[in-house]
Nucleic acid binder design. Structure first.
Length: 560
RNA sequence: GCGCCUGUAGCUCAGCCUGGAUAGAGCAUUGGGGUCCUAACCCAAGGGUCGCAGGUUCAAAUCCUGUCGGGCGCACCA
């Protein structure tokens, strides 16, 4: 439809398609039309009053594509023929179904690294944001023609693990190992507290760290392996619930060797050097003073996180023939990740120039930063439980269903609620997590979207709807808005792909749901004169809503 | 000190990239809507010097400069 507008204007003005496309806008209200062409720029060029130009163009236009073309001040307003538009849009959706909105915009093999929890530590609300985002971006990339490899990278060695093992051995040795993340997290918090009380214990911890790296003590190795696996098993359940499946899981412990080798080569190439006993890159030497100093190896020769990330980048490109590698990592690591990328460039790595950073702002508590050290955080499992309990209450108010169905629905609602809350906001914005306010299923929330979908499906069920041919007469206002909303979806996808912003899709889904609910309220479907058409419209709406939710990584419910 | 992010209604946020016609939602507040397809819904009302000051422009929440407030980062943590 936009194309028709462009074509029409092009016929009467000496402008290129691109110029026109950039000028065309959507009027602030439907009474002003569906598309508008502002004449300011042309007015300036021709040194004529834009309002006169608008009048002129309007008089000349004789296209039959539009219901009406009208000059209003300096604007030429186009009114699209809604009946034609509805027919076209609904038929497209009917045909393409879950592929509606999908478009081949890219054709690359892309790795998306996200989530990155550490073993022996809490999986908290902050991880939910990163995980939801990674999954959603992956789906958007796939939906637009790319092949995606989902990668997870976890810290399973180092000082924090040593502290955990120390705490367990010293204070909980008789307890059975559990796979609950809350238990795992609590051992770590206790370690930090005890170490503050008795700083002299730090020596014991360092001894454990040494033994752990050398692998000399069998008993310790066993405990490490076993507890590490507990964390991994706990994640499996979490990722399953969050609808995420990683193609590959990397661990820090596997990267020590390749990292050391890579750092060695950097020293050889004189990119890195020894300073105060540690191996570093001073970016001042590379005329990149703004990147500061990048630390690779400690004094004692052990590899730091940065060194391992370099090794990992190499490994990723070696293992998979990637076109691109995305890192979804907290904003606080921005400098660090740019140091990694610059180093890859200096080393002429395969990963150079193909690695990209997607910065993610943190999830905070009203009281400040979340920390797995102090336990000042909201664990995934605890938050989920509260959401599930609330969902159960709400369901029980409305329906009598068996336990199995109740469990299924409440979990899905809980996940939708948390994911949507994490995705609807811009990545650059810090989310201040207020637990009380987060547990709400009304308004701009995930459950509202699920509810809208379930309502639509309920109509189709009751009408015993089957797809067949349909006729469209005149559309009323709420039908028109709904059709227009459905027509917009492919554009939203394109923009979301270009900017890697799931929030655009989240906002769109909410708008669509609002428009649908308005339509639902004003129009009776079953038993109305327009039943056949309205059923198609309901079917299409539910389909598009489902597609949008899919891209957010949110599953729908047929009944809620 | 330097660098990055951020400031829009009482609260939480869209809109800013690509400047245009009355700045939009949700929550909260107030008032409506049930013989009717799921009221987790819908309708209406009140509520805004778009942090502040300059500049560019016919036109600025949007672009530029400065400034103030908040967050984060800047050598052996990850």
């Amino acid at each position: 439809m936009k194309k028709d507008v462009i074509k029409t204007i092009k016929k009467y003005m000496g402008l290129t398609t691109n110029e026109i496309e950039n000028l065309i806008e959507i009027p602030p209200s439907p009474e002003l039309g569906d598309f508008a062409f502002p004449c300011f720029a042309v007015g300036k060029k021709l040194k004529k009053n834009p309002a006169e130009i608008a009048q002129d163009i309007t008089k000349k236009i004789k296209s039959k594509e539009f219901e009406k073309v009208e000059a209003k001040g300096p604007y030429v307003n186009f009114f699209v023929d809604k009946t034609k538009l509805a027919k076209k849009t609904l038929e497209t959706i009917k045909m393409q179904k879950e592929k509606y909105g999908s478009k081949k915009l890219g054709n690359e093999k892309i790795m998306v690294e996200f989530s990155q929890p550490n073993t022996h530590k809490a999986f908290h609300v902050g991880h939910i944001r990163g995980t939801s985002l990674g999954e959603s971006i992956s789906r958007i990339l796939e939906f637009t023609g790319n092949k995606v490899i989902r990668a997870n990278y976890s810290g399973d060695t180092g000082m924090h693990i040593a502290k955990w093992l120390w705490s367990y051995q010293k204070f909980h040795a008789k307890e059975k190992l559990k796979e609950e993340e809350s238990w795992i997290a609590s051992i770590y918090v206790e370690a930090i507290k005890k170490l503050e009380q008795t700083p002299e214990s730090q020596e014991e911890v360092e001894e454990i760290n040494r033994k752990l790296e050398s692998g000399e003590e069998k008993k310790l190795n066993y405990l490490w392996k076993k507890t590490r696996q507990s964390s991994i098993n706990a994640w499996k359940k979490i990722y399953n619930e969050l609808n995420t499946k990683f193609s590959i899981q990397y661990f820090e412990s596997e990267l020590e060797k390749p990292a050391k080798a890579f750092v060695k080569s950097l020293v050889k190439k004189k990119i890195a050097k020894i300073s105060e006993g540690a191996t570093i890159i001073n970016f001042e030497d590379q005329n990149q003073a703004n990147l500061g100093v990048f630390l690779l190896l400690r004094k004692d020769g052990t590899v730091l996180y940065g060194g391992k990330d370099l090794g990992l980048a190499e490994k990723k490109f070696k293992e998979f023939k990637l076109n691109k590698s995305y890192y979804i990592i907290g904003r606080e690591q921005e400098l660090y990740i740019h140091q990694v990328f610059k180093t890859l460039e200096l080393a002429k790595s395969k990963a150079a120039g193909k690695s990209f950073y997607i910065p993610l702002s943190e999830v905070r508590l009203p009281t400040g930063k979340m920390s797995s050290r102090t336990g000042d955080n909201v664990l995934y499992s605890n938050f989920k439980k509260e959401l599930i309990d609330y969902a159960k209450e709400e369901i029980k108010k409305r329906h009598k269903i068996n336990t199995k169905e109740l469990e299924k629905r409440s979990l899905l609602i809980a996940i939708a609620s948390m994911k949507y809350a994490m995705l609807r906001q811009d990545l650059n914005k810090t989310i201040v997590f207020n637990k009380k306010e987060s547990i709400s299923f009304e308004g701009n929330t995930g459950p509202y979207l699920l509810y809208t979908y379930a309502r639509a499906k309920s109509i189709l069920r009751k009408a015993k709807y089957k797809q067949k041919k349909f006729k469209i007469k005149d559309l009323n206002d709420s039908e028109k808005s709904l059709v227009l909303q459905l027509t917009k979806f492919p554009e939203i996808i394109e923009k979301a792909y270009k900017t890697l912003s799931p929030s655009l899709i989240a906002n769109y889904a909410h708008q669509l749901a609002q428009t649908f609910n308005e339509f639902y309220h004003k129009n009776k479907v079953i038993g109305s004169k327009e039943e056949s058409f309205r059923l198609v419209l309901v079917d299409a709406s539910s389909q598009v809503l489902k597609n949008a939710l899919y891209l957010l990584g949110i599953e729908t419910l047929e009944r809620m």
